[in-house]
Amino acid sequence: MNVFRFLGDLSHLVAIVILLLKIWKTRSCSGISGRSQILFAIVFTTRYLDLFSNFISVYNTSMKIVYITCSYATVYLIYGKFKATYDFNHDTFRIEFLLVPSAILAFLVNHDFSPLEILWTFSIYLESVAILPQLFLVSKTGEAETITSHYLFALGSYRLLYLLNWLWRYFSQGFYDLIALLSGILQTVLYCDFFYLYISKVLKGKKLSLPA
């Protein structure tokens, strides 16, 4: 494991924990797209079905368990415990527009036509676009709390760091996985606009707000 991969995992973990803590401490999930969080729970579930059949390392197994547990806890906080604070009238992105094409593409373009492999591929495609309901919510309300911006920055950085990891692995081991690579590029590109706003506003102490 190289440093980019490790920092990527760390950044992913930081994002997930920031979101959970934000909701827990403020007793509110306003500004957070429950729909994106449902998609992330689906992503982790379909990707980590190999949890018991394919052992890689204690590190991998523990991270998978933490990611899955945290994503279900987040969904529970949004739709259960703090449902009263959920922005349901702004969180209106139609997730079937992401789920259906990801599923069709996973059947058509995969490494191996087997159930686990198709579900893994589906999770990669779905993850690449799963943040869209959240970005849609931010663009609809025109602003994001600073803590939500930190969450989005950490979550976006994770796949960017993975891209560097894949570049490293390609040159050091000749390893590459086109499905993960192309999806990772798409995923990172979707954050570009946000990265720009984050660096130009949030890091200078201003709240992230979009021009009207």
């Binding site: 991969r5 990707r47 394919n54 991998n60 191996d112 990891n165």
Partner: peptide
């Protein structure tokens, strides 16, 4: 031939 891709990342 079914190529098994090891998914060793997260």
């Amino acid at each position: 031939h079914a190529l098994h891709i090891p998914h060793d990342e997260l």
